[in-house]
């Protein structure tokens, strides 16, 4: 009588190898599907552009965009700056605003979440500021800060500040009371408990907040660069519109998308460092 191959008769080493092989195969399949998704999207795009369904004036094909990318690296027309300058300018704005939001928002959120009195003091003001859309600060910002880096960074800051603060606040509020009691029975002071128990346990939520903040700040960039800029990706997009150059607009969008993805990847690396304990 023949029996079907059974895992029960495998040795421990064979079983481990089998599970490893299966995991590897699953991972390969997932990667292949991701690549296929991107390729499919690009192909569809290329097909629509090539079919002439949409006029060339409105939709440039992916291949044209790639071509334009290399041209734009050295050619400042039509917006007056080469791509490198535009990227650098946008990065400066976004990272200044984003960085400030992290440096100010997260500690503020953690302190508000931990110290009740500080919470009562800060919360009303924050609740009023919170629902204001970042772009509605633009007119005031121009009056207060002019139109240079400071003004634009301020707008981005507001977009990124709110999720940083809220997540840090919520995260530290969710600290397991048992862990707080452990530290308390060891005789730890309130600040020590805040630092050694509250802050590390809030980190998961803090990183989720940073992720949202990163998206927000990059997304608010275009709006910020509507403040009379002379370079930047958002500015390039606006110029593309004014010159009716759909390809420039699409190139701007694509570069923003790619850089955003790179940032998320970078954030993942940092998060794995800090929250590495979560991994199996």
């Amino acid at each position: 009588m023949t029996q079907p191959p059974s895992t029960a008769r495998l040795s421990e080493a064979e079983r481990v190898a089998l599970v490893k092989r299966q995991k590897k195969r699953d991972k390969r399949t997932a990667t292949a599907l991701s690549v296929l998704g991107i390729l499919g999207f690009l192909l569809l795009w290329q097909a629509i552009a090539a079919s002439g369904l949409l006029s060339e004036r409105f939709l440039a094909s992916p291949l044209e965009i790639v071509g334009l990318f290399f041209v734009k690296l050295v050619d400042p027309s039509p917006d007056g700056a080469v791509l490198g300058v535009n990227i650098l300018s946008s990065l400066t704005v976004a990272l200044t605003g984003f960085g400030l939001a992290i440096v100010i928002g997260i500690p503020l959120g953690l302190l508000m979440g931990w110290y009740r009195a500080f919470d009562s003091f800060m919360r009303p003001v924050f609740e009023i500021i919170r629902p204001i859309p970042p772009v509605s600060w633009i007119p005031l910002t121009i009056v207060w800060l002019g139109i240079d880096l400071k003004a634009k960074a301020f707008i981005v800051f507001f977009a990124a500040f709110v999720p940083c603060l809220i997540n840090a606040y919520t995260g530290i509020r969710q600290t397991n009371p048992v862990l707080i009691n452990v530290a308390k029975t060891c005789g730890a002071s309130n600040f020590t408990i805040f630092w050694k128990v509250g802050c590390p346990s809030a980190m998961t939520m803090v990183f989720a907040g940073i992720r949202v903040a990163l998206g927000n700040s990059w997304a608010t960039l275009v709006a910020a660069e509507m403040l009379a800029a002379d370079s930047g990706l958002g500015y390039m997009i606006i110029m593309g519109r004014q010159f009716a150059r759909a390809d420039i607009v699409i190139l701007g969008i694509a570069v923003i998308g790619v850089i955003g993805t790179l940032f998320v990847a970078l954030l993942n690396v940092v998060e794995n460092r800090v929250l590495g304990w979560k991994k199996q």
Binding site: N176, V178, L179, A183, T185, C186, G187, V197, L275, W277
Partner: peptide
Amino acid sequence: LAFVFQEPSAFPWLTVEKNLRFGLEI
């Protein structure tokens, strides 16, 4: 004072060794 609670109370972000060190460092 030391307390072993009913609920699991190891610090999830600390390794076994660092958990053992926690109270002593406090």
